[in-house]
């Protein structure tokens, strides 16, 4: 079989890709769906962090990941890659950003290039899952709490105290066991001591 190894031809994405694509209903059909996704991918590359509906974010994320990985794989002198980038980026100055900013940023990374968070839903209005999609290494402040390992946090103080208590209980248990073992072993040695003289006699 002289079949080429597919995994080396197509860049492998570092995110989970579902079996089926989402339809993202649009009056223009599949073309309208792609238009929507192109807008989102362009927005993501431009602003680096966007908030949108979860379905559209998850769908666009895959295309953005693919676009960046192609750009890294082939560089800006590769014609097909340039065509793909030209198709996905509606604003042409972003082509320069893709190849001159994002490719150097992600060249040596071994994780996904984008990150997606669940966003809070609006308290009123349509009940739609929201998401925040961002490029890694963006200049904005972190969305998650970066101090979760801080041992002075209220929860961590309580957890540490609970762990300490548990450990102390375990130590006490072990000490008890050792004490009992010694008690059992000591009478034995006494027996031996007693038995010896008897034998001698």
């Amino acid at each position: 079989m002289n079949q080429a190894d597919v995994t080396k031809l197509v860049s492998k994405l570092r995110i989970k890709v579902p079996d089926q694509h989402r339809r993202l209903r649009s009056p223009k059909g599949p073309e309208g769906r792609l238009d929507k996704l192109r807008k989102t991918v362009t927005g993501l590359i431009k602003f680096e962090r966007i908030e949108l509906n979860h379905h559209r974010a998850d769908e666009a994320r895959q295309y953005a990941e693919r676009l960046i990985s192609e750009a890294i794989l082939h560089g800006d002198c590769h014609k097909p890659t340039m065509e793909i980038a030209d198709y996905w980026l509606l604003e042409k100055e972003l082509l320069h950003k893709l190849f001159k900013v994002l490719v150097p940023r992600f060249e040596n990374s071994n994780t996904a290039f984008t990150k997606m968070y669940k966003a809070p839903k609006a308290s009123s209005g349509r009940n739609i899952d929201k998401a925040i999609l961002e490029l890694r290494g963006n200049p904005y402040p972190l969305l998650t709490n970066k101090h979760s390992n801080n041992r002075y946090l209220l929860q961590n103080v309580l957890l540490d105290a609970a762990k300490y208590e548990y450990r102390q209980a375990k130590y006490a248990e072990m000490a008890d066991k050792i004490g009992k073992n010694e008690e059992i072993s000591q009478p034995k040695s006494d027996d031996v001591a007693k038995s010896k003289p008897i034998n001698e006699v």
């Binding site: 709490n145 101090h147 979760s148 801080n150 002075y152 946090l153 209220l154 103080v157």
Partner: peptide, 14 residues
Amino acid sequence: SFNVAEPQQVNKAF
């Protein structure tokens, strides 16, 4: 807030 870098004073206040 409760998850600042040095929350000792906030914890005491809590």
